[in-house]
Design a protein around this nucleic acid. Structure first.
Lengths: 181, 181
DNA sequence: CACCGAACCGGGGTGTGACCCCGTATTCTA
DNA sequence: TAGAATACGGGGTCACACCCCGGTTCGGTG
C-alpha cells in the first residue's frame, strides 16, 4: 500500500468514527470525505460500501467480544458469565446509533461485509448459552440465533427508548430462566 | 371539502396503503402520488408529512386497540387479558415495515402527528397492566411506558428477524411474571 | 537523480427522493 | 352561468449515494 493511500485511509477512519459517533451510521459519506479533506471518490475506493467502512471500524471490538466470551467461559460461573456477556454484547451493538438494525439485517444478507461480524458474534455467545442450558440455569428452548435476536432487541430499545431500556433488558434476562410449570 | 378534493384524498389513501404494504413506510411519497394519477403537490397538501399520512391510515386500528383493551378488561381473566392485548399490540405495530421505529420515535416527539397515537396506545395497555399487577400476576416494577417499549422491541424483532420473533416474544412475556427470589 | 509506469486522487456528473412555488383548472354558490 | 374560492400539476431546488475519467503523486530503477 502506498504511503499516501495509507495516510488517507487512516484519516478517513478517524473522521468516520467522529461522524458516526455524532450522527449515527446514516451520516453523509460525502461529508466524511470532506471533513477528512479528501474527495469522496477516495473514500469509495477504500470502502466501497457503508458496510465495509463499518466492518473495518468494528473488527477489533468484535473479536474482543469473542475473547471476552472465552475468558468468561474459563473463569466465571455459568449464569453470571452469560449475563455479563449479554450485557457486553448489547453495549457493543449500541456503539453507534442505527448500528443494531444494520447488524441484524446483514445477518440474513450473505453479501454484506458485516455478515461475518454478526455470525462470529452469534457463535461467541453460543458456547456460553449451551453451557448454561446444560447446567439447567437457562431454558433450553432457546437457540443461539434467538439469543442474538434478544440482544438486538435490547440494543434497539436502548437506542429508541433509553429510559425504558434498562428495565426491558432485565425482563428479557429474567425470561431466559427456565419457565415455571 | 370540495368533491374533487375528497376524491383525491381517498385515492391517495388507497395508493398509500398499497405502497406501504409492499415497500414499508419509507416508500417514495412521489410514487404514491404518481400511482394515484395525481401531482405530488396534491399529496403534500393533504398530508404535509409522512407521519400525518400514517396517522390517518392508522387512526381506526389504534382506537380499535383501545376498545379491545376495554373489552378484555371486562370479560377476560387478568393474566390472559394482558397477554392477548400485548399480542394484538405487537401485531398492530407491525402493520407496515418500519412502522415500529417511527412510532417509538414519535413517542418522544411532541410535534409528531403520531404522538397521540402512541400515547393512546400506551394508556390502553396501562389499565390491563395495573390490574394484573394488583392481582400479583405480573411483576410490579414495570410501568406502562416500559410495557410499551417491550411491545415495540418484540415488533421490531418481528420485522428484522421473523424466524426468531416468536421465541423472543415468549421469553419477553415470561419475563413479565414476578421474578423468583 | 531523473524518469516512468503504476497507484492514487479530486471534483464534477447522474439519478432519486423530499418538499416548495405559482400559473392554471375545477368546483360551488348565488 | 359567472365569479370567487378552492384545489391541482409539474417543474424546480436541495441533499445524498455512488460513478467516471483526466490529472497527480509515489517509489522503484538505471
Amino acid at each position: 500500500m502506498r504511503a499516501d493511500a495509507r495516510r488517507n485511509y487512516e484519516r478517513l477512519l478517524a473522521e468516520a468514527k467522529k461522524a458516526f459517533d455524532q450522527h449515527g451510521i446514516h451520516t453523509s459519506l460525502d461529508d466524511i470525505a470532506r471533513q477528512a479533506g479528501l474527495g469522496n471518490a477516495t473514500l469509495y475506493r477504500h470502502f466501497p460500501t457503508r458496510e465495509s467502512l463499518l466492518e473495518t471500524m468494528l473488527r477489533d471490538s468484535i473479536s474482543e467480544l469473542g475473547s471476552t466470551a472465552r475468558e468468561l467461559l474459563a473463569t466465571e460461573p455459568t449464569g453470571a458469565a452469560l449475563a455479563t456477556w449479554v450485557r457486553a454484547a448489547v453495549a457493543h451493538a449500541t456503539t453507534y446509533r442505527g448500528l443494531v438494525t444494520m447488524l441484524m439485517d446483514s445477518l440474513k444478507d450473505e453479501t454484506s461485509e458485516l455478515n461475518n461480524a454478526c455470525t462470529s458474534m452469534q457463535s461467541s455467545g453460543q458456547q456460553l448459552l449451551e453451557r448454561a442450558q446444560r447446567a439447567g440455569e437457562v431454558r433450553d428452548d432457546i437457540t443461539a440465533s434467538e439469543l442474538f435476536a434478544l440482544i438486538a432487541a435490547a440494543a434497539w430499545t436502548r437506542e429508541h427508548a433509553p429510559d425504558e431500556a434498562g428495565q426491558v433488558l432485565t425482563v428479557l434476562i429474567d425470561g431466559l430462566w427456565p419457565p415455571r410449570l
